[in-house]
């Protein structure tokens, strides 16, 4: 059997221009290009997507409020390399997904997490993710039509396409037929 346990990529989608990218779930793929293709197939069957980002899941540094309350903030490690930019995603509500909040610069993932917590507020964050910006792969403007267009002309995927409530009301209002 072929090994298909490809690396996981976390997928972020943007519903409208100007809205933050939010986490949709994950896909497996041999590389980022196919991860975007898989993410489109798995998460974009409906027209509410204008952009996708994928990031390798094993490159995400994660910290939860529960971990902080158990063990405190992770100690800032000694500088491991040059300063680089990390994108920050935060889950802020219990019933919510990770949302792109901004970016920080740091010399390591752990340092970026500490930086993210202090920059974006510890009080209302439940889970923080940071990932080096250079590892974020994004859909390009010239891919938008071919990737997201097919989901736009399928109104029958929307429950409002079916008028079951009206049909039931009409049947109820009809005089009963004699048996």
């Amino acid at each position: 059997m072929t090994d298909t346990q490809w690396p996981r990529f976390q997928v972020f989608h943007q519903e409208q221009p100007g809205r933050p990218h939010t986490n949709a779930g994950a896909v497996h793929a041999p590389d980022a290009e196919l991860a975007i293709q898989n993410a489109r197939d798995v998460f974009v069957r409906r027209p509410d997507c204008v952009s996708l980002w994928v990031v390798p899941a094993d490159q995400i540094f994660s910290l939860t409020a529960e971990e902080i309350s158990r063990s405190g903030l992770p100690p800032a490690p000694a500088a491991e390399g040059g300063l680089q930019r990390y994108l920050v995603f935060i889950k802020r509500t219990q019933v919510g997904s990770h949302e792109h909040a901004g970016a920080v610069s740091a010399t390591s993932g752990q340092a970026a997490l500490a930086e993210a917590v202090s920059t974006f507020g510890k009080a209302d964050g439940l889970v923080w993710w940071v990932v080096p910006e250079r590892l974020v792969n994004r859909t390009e403007a010239d891919q938008i039509g071919s990737l997201f267009g097919p989901a736009k002309d399928k109104p029958y995927r929307d429950q409002a396409f079916y008028h079951t409530t009206t049909l039931m009301r009409q049947i109820r209002g009809r005089p009963k037929q004699e048996a």
């Binding site: 994660s62 939860t64 529960e66 971990e67 158990r70 889950k91 219990q94 019933v95 439940l126 889970v127």
Partner: peptide, 9 residues
């Protein structure tokens, strides 16, 4: 009513 997340105990 809190959600348990990956990483939490």
């Amino acid at each position: 009513g809190e959600k348990i997340e990956p990483g939490d105990w």
